[in-house]
């Protein structure tokens, strides 16, 4: 039998090797983004730059800044609306178990997990009929419709973990369900709501199928299609493309590093695994 120590050595070796390989694309992107155009061709890709050159970051920012701001203008209101609709419905579904609610849960779960392709054409039909194609509003409406069901399921998972006795006590004191929801439940559910918000915000920020379809002009383009556009443009050098890519993933990376615990709990709840 292998000793405990040997086992730990094997475990750490596997983990450390995989860590290096898993972080390699980020490292290579960072190193490349700090090289001059010439250096990206003359030096080994793994080698750090002779001197940090931040010009690619300025070029990249000038190319993607508008899209970055568009993404912020779209993601924040849409996330807010999803979380609002989602926490209201999620609370209700977690508290009132009936046949109708089970059916509703089932229909919402289906709507959450179906591939977006089936919704793409009707959504564009709707947006052009209303005449808002090519506006921020079109993205906000789209993402609110797409992601409210998921926000409902995630927040319902968190509400289920909060004991009902809390509100029952409040109602004996004469509070209505709506009052007890806002005054008693929401403060206790805050960590769950943070998780829901993070998952929904990151999903919207990272979404591509609708983003590329709704980005009908460069003015309205959001960040992910902008990166795809940079990548498709032969005039853009690798150092700029890598800097642009890193700018595009900055918000999710910062959130994961700063609020990883909430992100993980959100992922688990979002997979309908439950949070207990």
């Amino acid at each position: 039998m292998i000793s405990f120590k040997t086992k730990m050595i094997i475990a750490y070796t596997v983990l450390v090797l995989l860590t290096f390989f898993w972080m390699l694309p980020f490292y290579v992107a960072l190193v490349t983004s700090l090289k001059s155009h010439e250096e990206t061709y003359t030096t080994n890709v793994l080698q750090p730059p002779s001197a940090a050159n931040i010009i690619p970051w300025f070029i990249a920012w000038s190319r993607v800044s508008r899209a970055f701001i568009n993404s912020i203008l779209v993601s924040i209101p849409a996330t807010f609306l999803c979380v609002l609709a989602g926490t209201l419905a999620g609370y209700y579904l977690s508290r009132f178990v009936s046949k109708v609610n089970r059916l509703l849960f089932f229909l919402i779960a289906i709507a959450t997990f179906i591939p977006y392709q089936i919704l793409l054409i009707p959504m564009t039909m709707f947006l052009s009929t209303v005449g808002i194609m090519g506006t921020h509003l079109s993205f906000i409406i789209t993402y609110t419709i797409l992601l409210s069901p998921w926000a409902t399921l995630i927040s319902a998972a968190f509400f289920l973990a909060i004991p009902k006795e809390l509100e029952e006590a409040a109602q004996i004191d004469g509070a209505s369900p709506v009052q007890s929801f806002f005054k008693i439940v929401l403060p206790v559910a805050l960590p769950g709501i943070i998780s829901t918000t993070i998952i929904i915000f990151m999903s919207i920020w990272n979404e591509f199928l609708f983003a590329v379809t709704l980005s009908t002009s460069p003015i309205i383009r959001t960040i992910q299609p902008e990166v795809a556009n940079l990548r498709g443009t032969t005039t853009v050098a690798w150092n700029t493309l890598m800097a642009g890519s890193l700018i595009a993933i900055l918000p999710p990376l910062v959130i994961t590093l700063a609020l990883g615990k909430y992100f993980i709990r959100g992922l688990l709840a979002g997979a309908l695994k439950g949070v207990r």
Partner: peptide
């Protein structure tokens, strides 16, 4: 988790 957190568009580009 870091690769899970980023967009597939950027993952593809990297």
């Amino acid at each position: 988790l870091l690769p899970t957190a980023i967009s597939m568009t950027v993952a593809g580009t990297l």
